[in-house]
Amino acid sequence: MTASNVGTAGVTAARLHTAVDGFRLRARAEGLVDVAYALADSPIGPLLLAGTDAGLVTVAFDGENTGVLDELAARLSPRILRDPARLDPVRRELDAYFEGKLRDFTVPVDWALVGPFGRRVLDLTARIPYGEVSSYSDVARSIGAPRAARAVGNALGANPIPVVVPCHRVVRIGGDLGGYGGGLRRKEFLLSLEGARPRL
């Protein structure tokens, strides 16, 4: 199916843009957008940010990856629209964080994508102070599951809101960085940005 099948009928790209923008405004005004998303630049590459009325639900690396949006459509709601303005508070905090001017994120978080075990792990992780690190087994012990270090690692790897929920602050005993959903290069960058030296 090509556009020519329905005729061009004098619709310019600018015209289409105006019509679509008008729709976006009205969709937002009527509260029809369940998940809003935006792309943001960062020193660790483009980020895709997505939020619901409850708060920030996803920070994804490699912002172009549409698999993230498909996943959100399947798990939360398909009423997903790009709406950078709605993610502005998150973007402002991320910018400040990457400039070293913000240590604690205050934007609300929506845990809808996190299961009960993951929630315990990430709640605890969110309390590790800026510039410090903890180990997988420390986290496991703290949530009362001392033998679940591997499960803790999996829960951290599944963190849908990295950077803001600082799973990068969990490393291996002995200083090895361990793993990171966004790749070790990013984990290293974040830890050195925070001035953390993983010595345990």
Partner: peptide, 12 residues
């Protein structure tokens, strides 16, 4: 698919 894709694919 995410509704945004409907705009991309069919708005024109």
């Amino acid at each position: 698919p995410p509704f945004e894709a409907l705009l991309d694919d069919h708005a024109g």
